[in-house]
Design a protein around this nucleic acid. Structure first.
Lengths: 121, 121
DNA sequence: CCGAATCCCCAGGGATACTG
DNA sequence: CAGTATCCCTGGGGATTCGG
């Protein structure tokens, strides 16, 4: 019934915006990373997701936290320690995100062939 | 073995860029629409994917065609008719894209609750 | 009807510097 | 260590116009 009330094909539907948010490489990579490791510190995430800036990583994590996908646990030690973990909602998203990442990796060669053929024509 | 040679966590890996391309709401919506209907004209696609501009739709379709995800068939009638269809490669991507779209629709309510709770705090 | 081409604007996102 | 704040600039993407 939830599928009946929301439709991402509709421009004004909230799920369109959510789809847009989920369609973010940093978000998908963060979810896969957290899904594989269970729990990760900020610096560990930054290391795994090579090339992400602190701004983008923090921004993505905040949005994910707000959307209920991850929990953020701050340990007020010196220096501070912050751990991120997928919520149950976030974990339900993990298989999907992993698949899209793996699809890109598994079909990269085919895509490159297609590009070469297209560019040659 | 393809999964061993490509890793989207690595910044310089081609699959990172591909993941970025796949992480595009217009691309995902186009794939789902084509997957559901089999074959669609340009104008039909534009109608289904509400709110997309011609520029973005054309741009997305071109990139998808170049990457071997869709075929583009032009019928030189008057006026011209252009049909798009998923390739086998594109069809293999369909389930993934459908899942992410459906996830957004099915969990929209939960996400909205999480947002309300976050904003209240 | 299906685009290509152009103009233009603003927000996404990187680099850098500062704080608890 | 884990951010926040600021600057700055590229390019995403909408609106419009023209062509076949």
């Amino acid at each position: 019934m939830a599928t009946a009330t929301f439709d991402a094909f509709t421009a004004a539907c909230p799920s369109r915006k959510l789809l847009d948010t989920l369609s973010d490489k940093w978000v998908s990579l963060a979810i896969v990373a957290l899904g594989l490791s269970g729990s990760l510190r900020y610096s560990e995430l930054a290391a795994r997701i090579e090339g992400v800036s602190q701004k983008m990583l923090t921004q993505s994590l905040r949005r994910m936290e707000r959307d209920g996908l991850v929990t953020r646990t701050v340990t007020p030690s010196v220096p501070v320690r912050t751990d991120y973990e997928l919520t149950e909602l976030g974990r339900s998203l993990m298989p999907v995100m992993r698949h899209i990442k793996e699809w890109a990796e598994e079909h990269m060669a085919e895509v490159e062939q297609a590009r070469a053929a297209y560019d040659a024509a």
